[in-house]
């Protein structure tokens, strides 16, 4: 017995070390996916050329020009958006104590889309940079509405109530959005690619506008992981441990809206990344958010860029928008979660 007690710390240490090593591997994996994203497309480029386009640009090379002007922005946006959506999803799941929470389920994406389409229709908005502010406003209002309705009543928040509220608000906003689009063909044409969710053809300017928000949101969420751990024990337990649950939730909500609003503005509504990534990560590293969130950063990048690359390959030479690919991959994932016993019972 005493020998066992002495040996106790070892497995813990090894676990911590192996989690650290895993994180490093994930970072390497994300980097590799970035390189692939520079290489693959309707025109395949060699690794040497794609790296040269960044570090040693030769304006004469057609390949390098393609990489520099099209794929570098696309990859950068993919990295920023993938990381932010995944961390936002993890934060939401912890703060709402709801395995189904995610930017698309809570209607943030639909709210942001609606705000942007409205702005384009009424305000003759042409600069994608201005999208950001409308995306924030729409996302914030919608998520507040959905969360308010989903948690009202004596039962508190249940996964099903929250998901239903999100779906209905999304349906309502989508129906208004499509009414606006029917009234005005130009808006439809301007928006239909954006509203499918895509990394392609985006202006780097948009990324620069959104980037500060993405960074602030993601860093803030990573710093909050200890609080999120305690919050996941339940409201009463967390408050009995001396936590201001309302304050922590409020901060988490603001961070989530920063991340998703900026992500939607930069890449359009991309569903299910935020829902799926934290679940995948939890299977590997367990429920500790101090590990879940950092892992989510890299796995989010891998998943989103991976989906984007898949969309480029599947129907060559044309492309499938990444939002469609993630939804097609992510919706079965939602069904899988729903089939886990605990969720439906809650």
């Amino acid at each position: 017995m005493s020998a066992e007690v002495v040996q106790r710390p070892l497995p813990r240490l090894r676990l911590r070390w192996s989690r650290g090593a895993g994180l490093f591997l994930c970072a390497l994996g994300a980097l590799a996916v970035c390189v692939l994203s520079l290489r693959i497309g309707s025109l395949d480029v060699s690794t040497a050329d794609s790296l040269a386009a960044i570090f040693d640009y030769d304006a004469g090379s057609y390949e390098q020009t393609v990489v520099r002007s099209l794929r570098v922005p696309r990859t950068l946006i993919g990295v920023a958006v993938g990381a932010a959506l995944a961390v936002a999803g993890g934060t939401m799941q912890a703060a709402t104590r709801n395995p189904l929470a995610g930017p698309s389920i809570l209607g943030v994406s639909a709210g942001a889309s609606f705000a942007i389409v409205t702005a384009i229709y009424f305000g003759q908005l042409t600069e994608p940079m201005q999208y950001v502010w409308f995306a924030f406003a729409g996302g914030l209002a919608t998520s507040a509405l959905v969360y308010g309705i989903g948690t009202a009543g004596a039962g508190g928040a249940s996964p099903v109530k929250l998901a239903l509220a999100g779906v209905i608000v999304s349906a309502l906003l989508t129906s208004w959005t499509s009414a606006l689009l029917l009234l005005d063909r130009e808006t439809l044409d301007a928006v239909r690619f954006w509203s499918a969710g895509s990394l392609a053809g985006r202006d780097l300017q948009v990324l620069w506008t959104a980037l500060p928000f993405l960074i602030v949101g993601t860093t803030g969420a990573l710093l909050m992981s200890h609080q999120l751990n305690v919050l996941s024990l339940g409201d009463d337990a967390a408050r009995a441990l001396g936590m201001h649950t309302g304050r922590v939730r409020g901060v988490a909500a603001v961070l989530v809206v920063l991340m998703t609003g900026a992500a939607v503005a930069a890449a359009g509504p991309i569903g299910f990344v935020g829902l799926a990534v934290p679940h995948i990560v939890r299977v590997v590293v367990g429920p500790d958010y101090r590990w879940v969130l950092p892992y989510s950063v890299f796995v989010g990048v891998m998943l989103l860029l991976g989906a984007d690359i898949l969309g480029r390959i599947l129907m060559r030479p044309s492309e499938i928008q990444v939002g469609i690919v993630t939804a097609a991959v992510g919706a079965p994932f939602l069904i899988w979660i729903a089939r886990q016993r605990r969720v439906a019972d809650v």
Binding site: L100, S104, I105, P159, V160, A163, L164, V167, R192, F193, S195, A196, G271, F272, I320, Q321, G323, I324, A327, A328, G330, A331, P332, L334, I335, I337, A338, R339, V343, A344, D345
Partner: peptide, 23 residues
């Protein structure tokens, strides 16, 4: 409850495919 959640998932898949067609 499980039926609702699965239904939402199927709904999302069909909607994604419809969006694909529209684009």
């Amino acid at each position: 409850n499980r039926l609702i959640l699965v239904g939402i998932g199927v709904n999302a898949m069909c909607a994604a495919a419809t969006t694909f067609l529209i684009v």
